[in-house]
């Protein structure tokens, strides 16, 4: 267990190192370096000023020098400043991360519960199966941002029950969480429903199910006590792989509902040419994603004794 954990943590560190280098190189391709932006903002800047500023910020140094200086700073815990928000990056990350974790965590919980329930329904009532399947295919095909817009039109514009956005101005409130969570949960529920149907159908053909039936267990007991726990494991694995999609996918949901979170922070930083913030936000989202995947893997190992020996 300890060895697995150590290997995985090392892999995560390595992945982050490679990603930081690739992303840093990519950022060099983004439109407008900070000095160009400064020149555009203040026409009184002369060529000498620009050269002086470049030297001051180290932009005249070669690429690898700049990368090493930046990465070294990160390792020492110096996250630098955000140009866009005029704040230390470290101060921006905490609240954004908490907001995204609340959003994605709630959505994941709801999606897993409802998805597995729908899957169980389809497996238990074969007549309901085609309907569940159709709903799942359509749910998976639906773009998240479209679902968000439709929910806004229905519940914010037409019915006026819930706000379409504004979590940034009015602070965190449950009212502002309902529609984004619903959007993200519905978007992911479909996949869980499909996988749990497939997994349950496979489990129901196992010999121990036949044994349970032969011993006179009710269909309900067979499904809930004998089949569901076993069928849940593959679904959990899908959820583990999904943790990343969820943390990243929150970007769209947060943008649609103007929710301040990691995704929105990253998006705003990219759009606003705030390279330092964009890079650090990307690395943090990647780290959270990989830690979530690792956590889900470990949980699965703990739940399924068959995996432990390997």
């Amino acid at each position: 267990m300890t060895r697995i954990l150590a290997t995985r943590l090392l892999q995560i560190a390595l992945t982050l190192a490679v990603l930081s280098f690739c992303a840093f190189a990519l950022i060099a391709l983004m439109p407008g370096d900070p000095i160009e932006v400064a020149i555009a903002g203040d026409p009184r800047l002369t060529a000498e000023d620009a050269a002086r500023l470049r030297a001051l910020h180290g932009l005249d140094r070669p690429f690898h020098d700049r990368y090493l200086a930046w990465a070294g700073g990160l390792l020492r815990g110096e996250f630098g400043y955000s140009r866009l928000f005029a704040q230390p990056v470290a101060a921006l990350l905490g609240p954004a991360l908490l907001s995204t974790l609340a959003l994605a965590g709630t959505a994941l919980l709801i999606a897993l519960t409802l998805g597995v329930a729908l899957g169980a329904l389809a497996a238990a009532r074969p007549r309901a199966a085609p309907a569940v399947d159709a709903v799942a295919v359509m749910g998976q095909a639906m773009p998240t941002f479209w679902l968000g817009i439709l929910l806004i039109i229905a519940f914010a514009v037409t019915l006026g029950w819930l706000p379409a956005g504004g979590a940034a101005e009015h602070g965190p409130g449950l009212r502002y969480l309902v529609l984004p969570v619903a959007t993200l949960a519905i978007a992911h529920l479909a996949a869980y429903a499909r996988h749990s149907v497939a997994s349950l159908e496979a489990t129901l053909t196992e010999p121990w199910i036949r044994t349970a039936r032969a011993r006179g267990a009710s269909e309900r007991a067979v499904l809930l006590r004998h089949a569901l726990p076993n069928a849940a494991l593959p679904v959990l694995q899908i959820a583990a792989l999904d943790a990343g999609a969820l943390a990243g996918g929150a970007l769209v949901t947060e943008t649609v509902f103007a929710r301040p979170g990691m995704g929105k922070l990253l998006y705003d930083a990219v759009m606003g040419n705030d390279t330092n913030l964009a890079l650090i936000a990307l690395l943090l989202v990647a780290l959270v994603t990989m830690l979530a995947t690792l956590g889900a893997d470990l949980a699965q190992r703990a739940l399924d004794p068959r995996l432990r020996e390997r």
Partner: peptide
Amino acid sequence: ALPALPLLVLLAAADPS
């Protein structure tokens, strides 16, 4: 292992010119 959408956003924002 990486979150696809944030990476896509970063790639798409790069300036090909």
